[in-house]
Design a protein around this nucleic acid. Sequence first.
DNA 1: AATTTTTCTGCTAACGTTCACAATCCGCGC
DNA 2: GCGCGGATTGTGAACGTTAGCAGAAAAATT
Lengths: 339, 339
Amino acid sequence: MNGGSRRRPTSFDVAERAGVSQPTVSRALSGSPAIAEATRRKVIEAAEALGYFVDERAARLRRGSTGTLAVVVICREGDSASSINPFAYALLGSVCVAASERGFETLVSFQAREADFFGHYQEQGRADGLVVIGTTTNAAAWEHFRGLESEGRKVAYWGSPFDELDWVRSDNRAAGKLAVEHLLAAGYRRPCFLGALNTPQVQFTERYEGYAEAMRAAGLEPCLAPTVNAPTREEEGRRAARRLIERGEGIDAVFAACDAMALGAIEAFAAADIAVPQQVGVMGFDDLVAGRFSRPPLTTIAPDPAEAGAALVEAVLDEGEAARRRVPVSLIVRGSTAR
Amino acid sequence: MNGGSRRRPTSFDVAERAGVSQPTVSRALSGSPAIAEATRRKVIEAAEALGYFVDERAARLRRGSTGTLAVVVICREGDSASSINPFAYALLGSVCVAASERGFETLVSFQAREADFFGHYQEQGRADGLVVIGTTTNAAAWEHFRGLESEGRKVAYWGSPFDELDWVRSDNRAAGKLAVEHLLAAGYRRPCFLGALNTPQVQFTERYEGYAEAMRAAGLEPCLAPTVNAPTREEEGRRAARRLIERGEGIDAVFAACDAMALGAIEAFAAADIAVPQQVGVMGFDDLVAGRFSRPPLTTIAPDPAEAGAALVEAVLDEGEAARRRVPVSLIVRGSTAR
DNA sequence: AATTTTTCTGCTAACGTTCACAATCCGCGC
DNA sequence: GCGCGGATTGTGAACGTTAGCAGAAAAATT
């Protein structure tokens, strides 16, 4: 109809059409209770006729809020975007969805260096809260986040190594327990944990704890195949498995702290002509797509990105107690533990 | 220092401290040429001392811009965030990075139904442009995007099936050519294309075209192993490979339109006791992480998410000619084609 | 030395909302 | 018949910035 490049309608336009004052439009549309039902209907009708929508920039400026959630995905410097753990992406996705369901926009940034995102977030203060995905080992991070929180901003951390912060994690102890129970039920007798403890990756430690507890509950001695630093997680798994083979301790199953390590371990066993799953059962944690395609397909414990994202958003937006939530995990049985 | 919950400093505070008027602060910081260097220095100094940063909400409100790029990732309804193609996530990441390098924020949303994101974007008009990731078959999309563009908003599409829109794609023809050249150089004689043509997935068709051209250039007849709809791409690959085996046409290599299909094909060959890569070479396109872990590891053509993201942002933000860009791809040789 | 030009800066008014407060209207009890 | 509380609505200001215009100072020109 209106052929020209029409300007966006404002609340004044709506007010005029509805025959009320401009602030009344604002009240009517924001659901204020101090508005007569008839007026509200009139206003809504006029707004729809004009295709009016609140200009969030202005609303937030006036309100003093931002309506925005900052999400920072930490990646190692030089990492290409594609080398980020697929789970982090899935988590990012569900954080965006959960935020949008609560009317928040998501300001996503991928930051290699922590200094960058400190700057990005702190200095510009454009968000009402911050979700951090990825583990940082930087101790200064702790200080920084405390600082943000004392300014009234909330920060929620996926898998924080700092217990003072609000974090959300997978229920890693339950994962360890699930793994042991599954391996024993599948007929394995000496499942061994493959991974490093006492690293910033608390999740690994927690998985070990769950594993160890379940082992003791079954009357078995926990066993640890420690990994050491290597360029990639697969390589760490490969090396740890190789060492395990050399020592030959009668291990008949491996629960790796993450799928990438598990896949590396499978490769090492294959190279040593040890049959998986017949001679050694292998399982991991993460439910990487890669596990579906490995030979044999990898049994794994799957985290729940949807639930985790929702919990993170909740932790940031909802006032109240420190939110330390554990998200349930589930067992996915595939060929690598089918004795 | 200032123990209490200090308010964010405004340009007035800076003006006062620097002994100039408030608009001068704005000019000095935004790099206006009509400002004496000495004044600018004074202002910058005061701003730094106070930790001042422009409130983008207000700036944009006044300026009439949004400083925001909307990014929509299309996913099938009911899809969990984790079932989205990993490449889409990598692309999302690099779009965010590229936008941020140009001073734009990214408003990310994951939308199952197209209607949702039409609404989300159009009605609220909160972004200066839109990047759409994912292929939609909805014809109404075309209309909609044309509409947005006529309103002065730019839209760039990753892999659009509609040629009228600004799109960015991998150089799929080059990919087909690379694949054929590699397979022939590796000693295979009858490489066959595995995938469906005439679908909304133009990228598949383009890969076939490149393949066919290179085949003819080498004096060979192109050959097509058509796939049909199946719940997953792997399954499509599996079925197509099975049909290929049954017909036994003397094919000795397969170039699948995507890695997922290639992985499915490898499974089918393994199930039929056909050795990959000895009897049949298999390669794909996408460089999925899963391909690194498959048995044998998958040779593939890798798209370049970083480059693609930058190109998409450029297409949206830079005025001028319709931007139809092809992003170079690269060959990654692994075990599945090592005769 | 007077005038013009240039360079810089200040004043004022937006941008489109929401909030605090005052004003109006209604019915009702006295 | 008058005043009074509750329910609605209007008025005015504010959020923090940028842009247009005009004025003042400095530099260049006559």
